[in-house]
């Protein structure tokens, strides 16, 4: 069953013309993570590698391709966590870096803190020699078009958010049974400057504990925070629920208690995994036993050899 890696490219409603790119993107990211695991890399190395791929892919709302805040700027949130020590690193509202997920790992490894925000996160990035990139390099034409569209007074960014791929994330278990999670996002369309969503908040955007499993979440950030979705799912697993049942319970609770939709990828330390969502779609992919799994719509689950070219769903 080990190793295994599962990624998501966000829950929501994905326009037809963009669904192919999303599926290709999550499959390519999960392969990259799986290569790391097969080489004997840790689950932490694997989730950071997979999420770096998703951040670099302009089809997703993270790194390059992030949505813009109300001022037309990119501010990004990210988190990593490893289940052996509960070590964790996060950044919120960080600007001008290509790969926030790699910065979160530096926060975890090189500081005594767990979260750095805004200008302080940038200062730390500079001190670590992380190159600053111009904001323009993170902004796609698509992101700018959607920002303009939502500047009109009666626009509903929450509604529209579901019209684009959300957050990206990954969970993995390595051959030693260590779990890890990583989540990265440009946040919510036309958000206020300085808005922090669920992603960098431990227990909301992600959580990893070798005693129960790892979760990365996506969906309406404010709602995910209210129910601390990642931690909630792992509480259910601690009570004996499977990764799939616990994910469904967590998402159903979020829907009934705060009327919101989302999606998650979940693993347990034995390598059981789940990709579940209450939204219309979520692009996801998993790699285990040299088999690639992927899907986009509810109930969709394609499988094929890990190295074969994508056969279906695109």
């Amino acid at each position: 069953m080990l190793p295994v890696v599962v990624v998501h490219g966000g829950a929501g409603h994905i326009p037809k013309e963009r669904s192919e790119k999303s599926t290709e993107g999550v499959c390519s990211a999960v392969r990259a993570g799986y290569v790391v695991l097969k080489r004997g890399g840790s689950s932490m190395d694997a989730v950071v590698e997979a999420v770096t791929h998703l951040e670099n892919n302009p089809a997703f709302n993270a790194g390059c391709g992030s949505v813009l805040n109300v001022k037309g700027e990119v501010e990004m949130d990210a988190i990593v966590m490893e289940g052996k020590t509960l070590g964790s690193g996060a950044v919120s509202a960080v600007r001008n870096i290509a790969n926030p997920i790699q910065l979160t790992r530096l926060v975890m490894d090189k500081t005594s803190h767990a979260c750095l925000t805004a200008e302080g996160a940038s200062q730390f990035a500079r001190s670590m020699g992380v190159p600053e990139v111009p904001m323009e390099s993170l902004i796609t034409e698509y992101a700018r078009m959607r920002w303009r569209k939502n500047l009109v007074p009666d626009a509903n960014p929450v509604e529209c958010q579901m019209g684009k791929m959300g957050t990206v994330g990954a969970v993995a278990v390595d051959s030693e049974g260590n779990v890890a999670c990583a989540t990265s996002t440009g946040g919510m369309l036309n958000k206020m400057e300085g808005r922090v969503g669920d992603t960098p908040c431990i227990g909301s955007g992600g959580y990893a504990d070798n005693q129960s499993g790892a979760v990365s979440t996506t969906g309406h950030g404010e709602a995910i925070m209210k129910v601390t979705l990642a931690r909630l799912i792992l509480f259910h697993m601690e009570q004996g629920q499977s990764a799939e049942a616990a994910s469904d319970l967590g998402l159903a609770y979020m829907k009934s208690r705060v009327s919101a939709l989302g999606g998650v990828v979940t693993v347990d330390p034995q390598g059981q995994w789940a990709a579940r969502f209450s939204s219309h779609q979520m692009s996801w992919a998993a790699a285990q036993k040299d088999t690639l799994h992927y899907g986009l719509y509810v109930g969709e689950h394609f499988t094929q050899g890990i190295d074969e070219p994508l056969l279906q769903g695109i």
């Binding site: 805004a118 302080g120 958000k191 206020m192 300085g194 808005r195 969503g197 404010e222």
Partner: peptide, 15 residues
């Protein structure tokens, strides 16, 4: 007064 849960840094001061 906002649709958000959390504001940080300069954004929080601007708000």
């Amino acid at each position: 007064k906002t649709s958000h849960v959390m504001l940080t840094g300069r954004g929080a001061n601007l708000f």
